[in-house]
């Protein structure tokens, strides 16, 4: 899967991070619980979720954070390095239920997005800062955050 490498010179303030679509499903939440070790029943049991004041099990904040990690590592490619990743869990999201063993019902799609806010060279590193977020189908940023990456630099050509 040879991806095209992103270079420092390829981005400017305002450049969009290549968006990434995600569909949270009840199945994905179960896999996330197992993969991450977060077994809080808030994310898989209706009655417990209700006792915590939410309508039904909600998407783990940390899963949305992991989506943002995916957004950034895809964008920077194998040659980039993610230095910082931060986000806040501001809004709740509800997963789609499953229609078949493999396919979800129709419903919401989430988008992970970002824009470049700053680029500079520090200690010989070519650094790019971005605002990033997960937005729901209504366009609400339920998980806003930021990321700082180091990108490779095309050698001076002269």
């Amino acid at each position: 899967m040879a991806k095209k490498q992103l270079y420092y010179e390829d981005v400017e303030v305002g450049t969009e991070v290549t968006p990434l679509a995600k569909v949270a499903t009840t199945q994905m939440l179960v896999k996330w619980a197992g993969g991450s070790g977060d077994f809080n029943p808030l994310h898989f049991e209706d009655s417990f979720a209700a006792s915590q004041g939410v309508d039904s099990p909600i998407v783990h904040g940390a899963l949305k954070r992991a989506w943002l990690g995916h957004l950034m590592t895809d964008w920077i490619g194998d040659g980039g390095f993610l230095k910082k990743l931060a986000c806040q869990y501001r809004g709740m999201d509800y997963p789609r239920k499953m229609k078949t063993i493999t396919d979800p019902q129709e419903g919401e799609t989430w988008w992970c997005r970002g824009t470049v806010t700053k680029k500079y060279v520090e200690d010989d590193q070519h650094i790019v800062e971005c605002d990033i977020w997960v937005e729901n189908a209504k366009g609400e940023k339920t998980t806003p955050g930021s990321a700082t990456v180091v990108l490779p630099f095309k050698k001076a050509k002269s």
Binding site: K22, K31, G34, G35, L63, A66, G69, H70, T73
Partner: peptide, 16 residues
């Protein structure tokens, strides 16, 4: 294996 399961849970097929 734990890394693979974690990446799979996110839906991230990155071969790294």
């Amino acid at each position: 294996g734990a890394i693979r399961r974690y990446a799979d849970a996110i839906g991230d097929p990155n071969p790294l």
